[in-house]
């Protein structure tokens, strides 16, 4: 398993899908570990009844069907599929509505979905998903990107309430790729994935949604920042090490 994770850390993020299915076939005995530890790009399906798109993941899957957060129905229809309790479904409906606005404000487009389910220790788990196509042909407002994908997966475990507080454990993953393409620069492509965790004990006075939302907003912002500044910055540093730009200045002068 360690070797498999070692490979996943090195192989190009754009090949994650292929690499994962290759590993699954090489080591079927580790399939559940692989599927839980390797994040895959998100897929989207259209809920025909509400005419809205929703995101597919392990958390809304039962057999070969996926539950839409908008209608609470499985697609394709499934007899006795799993559903959250009425109380949790109400929170899920509210979370989906609010998260759609959050998604709009940060992403200016994109699809969001929230799924919740009861867990074994009297708490629950919520999964907040965002998928954004930022390309010119997708939802890219500014039209700079030839290709651009952003997938965010936030899984948050909420412990049972205890004296007015609850413990929240959040694991966030962002997978992205962006490509620009023009005459002077050719093809310029950055892609990657990072995952971080954050835990807090918070008062539930303002409600679970408020607490979960703030944690997600904070961690998502941090992930975006470190991708932008640390991770992209490191690749830029590498380019400058390979060919130091100081030479540019002298190059501009004619050779006389």
């Amino acid at each position: 398993m360690e070797a498999a994770m070692g490979l996943m850390r090195r192989i190009h993020p754009k090949h994650t899908d292929t690499a994962l299915s290759a590993l699954l076939s090489l080591m079927p005995e580790h399939s559940s570990d692989l599927l839980s530890q390797v994040d895959q790009p998100l897929q989207v399906l259209c809920d025909e009844e509400s005419a809205k798109e929703f995101i597919l993941c392990e958390y809304n899957r039962d057999a070969d069907s996926y539950r839409s957060p908008w209608t609470n129905k499985y697609q394709p229809p499934l007899e006795d599929g799993l559903y959250p309790s009425v109380e949790l479904r109400n929170l899920e409906i509210e979370a989906n509505d609010v998260f759609a606005v959050y998604c709009d404000q940060y992403y200016e487009g994109g699809v969001s979905s929230v799924y919740m389910w009861e867990d074994d220790n009297e708490g629950f788990v919520a999964c907040f998903l965002i998928k954004k196509d930022g390309s010119r042909s997708g939802h890219g407002r500014r039209g700079y990107l030839h290709e651009g994908q952003w997938d965010a997966i936030h899984v948050i475990e909420v412990g049972p309430e205890d004296e007015g507080t609850a413990r929240y454990c959040l694991t966030s993953t962002v997978m992205l790729s962006l490509t620009t393409n023009n005459d002077s620069c050719g093809t310029f492509s950055l892609s990657g994935s990072i995952r971080r965790q954050m835990s807090m004990q918070l008062s539930v006075a303002e409600g679970h949604l408020c607490n979960m939302g703030r944690m997600i907003e904070e961690l998502e912002g941090k992930l975006r920042n470190s991708l932008d500044q640390v991770y992209f910055g490191k690749t830029r540093e590498m380019v400058c090490t390979l060919r130091p730009p100081a030479e540019l200045a002298t190059m501009k002068l004619p050779d006389s």
């Binding site: 959050y102 940060y106 954004k132 700079y144 962006l178």
Partner: peptide, 22 residues
């Protein structure tokens, strides 16, 4: 520019999301 088309640093409102008044 480029990265902003994937996700903005701040919401269009330029303030953190108002989770308390959702």
């Amino acid at each position: 520019t480029t990265f902003k088309d994937l996700r903005r640093k701040l919401p269009v409102t330029r303030t953190l999301f108002p989770w308390h008044s959702t």
